[in-house]
Design a binder for these strands. Structure first.
Length: 489
RNA sequence: CGGGGCGUAGCGCAGCCCGGUAGCGCAUCUGCUUUGGGAGCAGAGGGUCGCAGGUUCAAAUCCUGUCGCCCCGACCA
């Protein structure tokens, strides 16, 4: 069997690219830093979207859509926000092309009076709109989500993990009180945590970002951080408490019960197609993609095997009945009865694409009323009775789902260490990578120094951690509890 | 923006040093045999060699320029 995938231990980033290519998730586009998301990748995104969307609706949010283009002047209204995004904005300056000798050229006469920015995020245009939507406390809260594409002009890109254009959802809420907005921020962080762990089977640590890692324009940025197989951390989602920063910048006030005019409190939160990168790097192996059943576009594939026409019709009939029964049981099942590919080829293909379960059926199985079941995660194969399959498969899918989470959890735990001295800290990073808990004195200077010297950043100040006073590993100054460091994507 | 690599058939590559009919594997098409872990044989189709100049009787190959992409680092979801 020809191996088209580089081994993880040999070259992790080449392995990642190989998996994306062989599983046909996406390909590079003619435009630098952009990607074509292929049907396999997009179905995965659709499944993520569907689940997240349900969870957003469940928590009272509604979807809306705001423009791709933002007037340049909007960007300059919130000082921190501009500073954060100014360096990576695509700017539209003209509206027309004209024919020229070498094809087409920009028509200088079509220069825009006010240039437009392709949204890097939508806070500004949304808050400009919210001003019109909000007059009274009765108009609050506003709980809006939008599914959209955004553009950030990145210097260095990587399929799914960092592309210049990416797909995401951005929630933007407006509240009458600080308390309510803070609660919303944490509520959505927990939605992300639940989604990551229960659906992606990707364990995450929740926490708060330090000032330097905070979203531009936020008062507090909460995040979920996941640990990848190669020892690097991935920020998988963020939820921001924006305070009154945007309300003040865009003059969004409301009249409260007490008759007084007040500025609105805000949150925003988002996850992106980056999650697909996280999913790949959490579960996949040297044979290709491994998908958690709850998100897999195809959960079960049935591969029929035959030698002649007679066997073909018997096996296909057997497979068809099974297909209908499983589909009826609510399973995302596919019968791969294509005649132009051999079974062995199909086995490999579905394996590299990460289909959680494979059912192989041949004439022998038809005669004995059996099937061969193969798990993608463990690569185990066993023969089971045809009867009761409709009950067995859903259970098995759930077993796989929790096995994936469990093994990722165990791995993350093994990749999590504690350092008390700076020497120990560097030693851990260089030999193992992973998460490192250690004390930090809370200053930007120390954080900066550690980053420059080790390339590790503070991923977050974890929410679930016991108070355990100690001393900063660099300066020896007191610290109330350890913080989480890692090198990251 | 620095460092490295690459642009030759749909995909992956060789050919370039040493100029002389553009090749290999996979894929595609036809036929036969096959089908329980990426099938075999026979035949067929498919390429402005990234682009622009230059040297030469002759350029994928040498020279100059230029464009693009990928990978590794400095910034970021």
């Amino acid at each position: 069997m020809a191996k088209k995938i580089t081994e993880r231990r040999k070259d992790y980033s080449q392995w990642y690219l190989d998996v994306v290519r062989e599983a046909q998730l996406a390909s590079h586009s003619p435009v630098r830093g952009c990607m074509v998301i292929k049907p396999n990748g997009f179905s995965l995104w659709e499944n993520m979207q569907r689940q997240l969307d349900d969870m957003f609706k469940e928590t009272g949010h509604r979807n809306a859509y705001f423009p791709l283009f933002i007037p340049k002047s909007f960007l300059s209204k919130e000082a921190q926000h501009v500073e954060g995004f100014a360096k990576e904005c695509a700017v539209i300056t003209h509206s027309r092309l004209i024919n020229s000798e070498d094809g087409v050229t920009v028509d200088p006469a079509s220069k825009l009076e006010e240039e437009l920015i392709v949204r890097p995020t939508s806070e500004t245009i949304i808050w400009d709109t919210y001003r019109d939507w909000i007059q009274s406390y009765r108009d609050l809260p506003i709980l809006i989500n939008q599914w959209a594409n955004v553009v950030r002009w990145e210097m260095r890109t990587r399929l799914f993990l960092r592309t210049m254009e990416f797909l995401w959802q951005e929630g933007h809420t407006a509240h009458a009180t600080e308390k309510e907005a803070r609660e919303e921020t944490v509520r959505m962080l927990n939605v992300y945590r639940t989604f990551a762990e229960d659906y992606m089977a990707m364990p995450v640590i929740t926490g708060i970002k330090t000032e330097s890692e905070r979203f531009a324009g936020a008062v507090d940025t909460y995040c979920i951080e996941a640990m990848m197989q190669d020892g690097k951390a991935l920020q998988a989602g963020t939820s921001h408490f924006l305070g009154q920063n945007f309300a003040k910048a865009f003059d969004v006030r409301f009249q409260d019960r007490d008759g007084k005019e007040k500025f609105v409190w805000a949150t925003s939160w988002g996850v992106s197609t980056r999650l697909i990168g996280g999913l790949i790097m959490t579960h996949s192996d040297d044979n290709g993609l491994v998908l958690p059943p709850r998100l897999a576009p195809t959960q079960v594939v049935i591969v029929p095997i035959w030698r002649n026409d007679d066997e073909q019709s018997r096996v296909i009939e057997y497979g068809n009945t099974m297909f209908k029964a499983l589909k009826g049981a609510g399973i995302r099942v596919k019968l791969d009865d294509r005649d132009q590919y051999k079974p062995g080829w199909k086995f490999s293909q579905h394996e590299v694409e990460g289909t959680p379960l494979r059912i192989a059926i041949g004439p022998r199985d038809v005669d004995n009323n059996k099937v061969e079941l193969a798990r993608r995660d463990t690569l185990e194969k066993k023969i089971v009775d045809r009867e009761g399959l409709e009950m067995l498969i859903p259970e098995l899918l759930e077993t796989i789902q929790s096995a994936l989470f469990e093994s990722a959890r165990k791995r993350t735990l093994e990749q999590t260490r504690t350092a008390t001295t700076y020497e120990e800290f560097k030693e851990i990073l260089d030999t193992h990578g992973g998460f490192v808990y250690t004390h930090w004195d809370g200053t930007v200077e120390t954080e900066e120094r550690i980053k420059n010297e080790t390339k590790a950043t503070i991923r977050c100040l974890p929410l679930e951690i016991e108070e355990k006073p100690g001393k900063c590993m660099v300066t020896g100054k007191p610290s109330p509890y350890p913080v989480l460091f890692a090198r990251s994507y």
